[in-house]
């Protein structure tokens, strides 16, 4: 029984499957001319974002609205955070306004964990630091399953800034729980310490890392990594670890390419890949709405409460 969605590492495989199946069935609602169902009418969903986000925030809000929930969005820049209020005091105040569900993004790993322990309502982690971004991994898994018909036995190569990526971590736990094999491909300075202790194959060479893969997922490279001295230049990164059409010749012929966005074209992903038939990047975005509908549906108990 799901009470919060904080980390896929702590989510049962059965719950992951349930969320994927539910989202798949909700895809149909997104194809309708009138995209509205009464399922969560009267429910208050608050999105609390301490980090800039377009895609994830809009995706959650649209998902809530399609299910007829009321949504309020709080951005850290305009909130009492500026006045030095602690995270726990902020969310306790929101809770006191009788909200039903809190969706939060925060730059600190573990922030969603901290909040979920303090609140008696469902908390959804929309990304916490370098820890996890569970709905992103769920929408990635849904997209892969739509193309491959399964997750079990697939090889998924995740390429790029693994060390700082919550997307990589959530995908690792989600995909391996569903029976897929995961590879991390990154320059040594972007691999986290003791990564070999995780259930993952690790490569520093892109060509070896994508060989025979069913899925290649490129991660966003932040400019900040150059500033911290982790990489010499964008050029060398693009040449050695950028996903392009040439390197994809080494994958399975039907390999799909994914990216959690926003893309740095010409850096971690080449134009000839991002806009190609292998790219499922925009499908990921659509599936994101369906996944978030499924998450809110199961956490808020659906129509049972009407």
């Amino acid at each position: 029984m799901l009470t919060d969605l904080i980390a896929l590492r702590e989510t049962e495989p059965g719950d992951i499957r349930l969320l994927l199946d539910t989202a798949q069935s909700f895809r149909e609602i997104l194809e309708r001319p009138v995209k509205k169902v009464p399922t969560l009418r009267g429910r208050q969903v608050v999105t609390l974002f301490y980090e800039a986000s377009t895609r994830t925030r809009v995706s959650f809000e649209n998902a809530a609205k399609i299910m007829s929930a009321d949504t309020t969005s709080v951005a850290a820049a305009t909130s009492s955070v500026q006045k030095g209020e602690s995270l726990l005091d902020t969310v306790r105040n929101l809770r006191a306004m009788q909200i039903d569900c809190l969706v939060m993004r925060h730059p600190q790993s573990g922030a969603a964990h901290l909040v979920a322990q303090a609140l008696d309502i469902p908390v959804v982690n929309a990304g916490d630091g370098m820890h996890e971004h569970p709905t992103q991994a769920l929408l990635d898994m849904l997209t892969i399953r739509q193309h491959k018909g399964r997750l079990e036995g697939l090889t998924v190569a995740i390429v790029g800034d693994i060390a700082h990526s919550r997307v990589a971590r959530s995908n690792l736990w989600g995909l391996t729980k569903m029976g897929a094999k995961v590879r991390f491909v990154a320059p040594a300075t972007l691999l986290p310490r003791d990564v070999h202790g995780l259930p993952v194959e690790v490569y520093t060479d892109l060509r070896a890392g994508v060989e025979g893969a069913d899925v290649v997922m490129a991660l966003r490279l932040q400019q900040e990594r150059m500033e911290r001295g982790l990489l010499p230049s964008l050029r060398e990164y693009a040449q050695r670890w950028g996903v392009n059409a040439k390197v994809l010749e080494l994958t399975k012929p039907d390999c799909i390419v994914m990216h959690p966005g926003p893309m740095n074209r010409g850096v971690e992903i080449a134009d000839d890949v991002a806009d190609s038939g292998r790219s499922v990047i925009l499908e990921q975005v659509t599936n994101g709405v369906a996944i978030r509908m499924a998450v809110l549906y199961h956490l808020l108990g659906g129509e049972a409460s009407a």
């Binding site: 573990g110 916490d128 630091g129 820890h131 996890e132 919550r166 310490r193 990564v195 202790g197």
Partner: peptide, 15 residues
Amino acid sequence: NEGLTSTIMGLRGMP
């Protein structure tokens, strides 16, 4: 501490 636990938790580690 920097190690497998910090990697899982997504926290910066002190080696």
